[in-house]
Nucleic acid binder design. Structure first.
Lengths: 116, 116
DNA sequence: AAATATGTGTACTATATACTACACATGACA
DNA sequence: TGTCATGTGTAGTATATAGTACACATATTT
């Protein structure tokens, strides 16, 4: 499923219950032209900027990191974290490339709980 | 220290011992015009593409992830790893934002050794 | 039936990215 | 001293990114 398809699907679902989720009205709320959002949803143009994707995520109640990923992007705040300690993070992330989900989850939990 | 300054410094250092490290010759080996490399080193233009930065890292014996970071970029292979599991990695990386170096290092080591 | 809202086609535009090509003054060296 | 290499100034190019503006046919609402 492409970025555009995903957006369209979820926007239309919300529209069932609330007609404020038309292309035009969502476009207005996230600050783009309706024709542009329409083209994005149909894959006629590339996904929009990170800022617009974030606004869209907020509007549709979706996870911004997931939407950014579908758009082929990585959140700029994550990039900044990595850029500040490139060797440490590059090494760790490559190690985790083939780790199972539960292992990554557990590490995140351990770090959060301060078990280190 | 900027990307350009760093490159110039390290290239000049190598040039002391080996005159094959002139702007012209390095430029030729990494596949750019000498004038362009000159401008990069003086910060006259933005850092080059990821591919050229990698070639430069190879040529100067530097860590590509570090050079990419100085250029304000994050390696595309890391971005791809994150994009495949955005929630897991986004969460983990944000957790590790303020973790001390030794903690991140230890996690990477633990993962490598399979202690999980 | 009239007014209004909706989705989309077409045609642009502005800025950034990632360079090349050529010329030229200066310095090294044979 | 002539040749060759060196670093750099100027000008230009191709492609990507991130959109806008307007018009128009088709619903939907009043």
């Amino acid at each position: 499923m492409t970025f555009g398809e995903y957006i369209r699907e979820h926007r239309e679902a919300l529209k069932e219950q609330d007609r404020r989720f038309s292309v035009r009205q969502v476009a207005q709320r996230i600050g783009v032209e309706p024709a542009y959002l329409s083209k994005i949803e149909r894959g006629d143009v590339a996904p929009p900027s990170e800022a617009k994707i974030r606004a869209l995520a907020e509007e549709l109640g979706e996870d911004p990191d997931v939407l950014l990923a579908m758009a082929g992007k990585v959140s700029s705040d994550l990039q900044e974290i990595i850029r500040k300690r490139p060797q440490l993070f590059a090494d760790l992330i490559r190690q985790l490339k083939s780790a199972p989900d539960h292992a990554i989850l557990r590490i995140a939990r351990d770090v959060r709980d301060g078990d280190w």
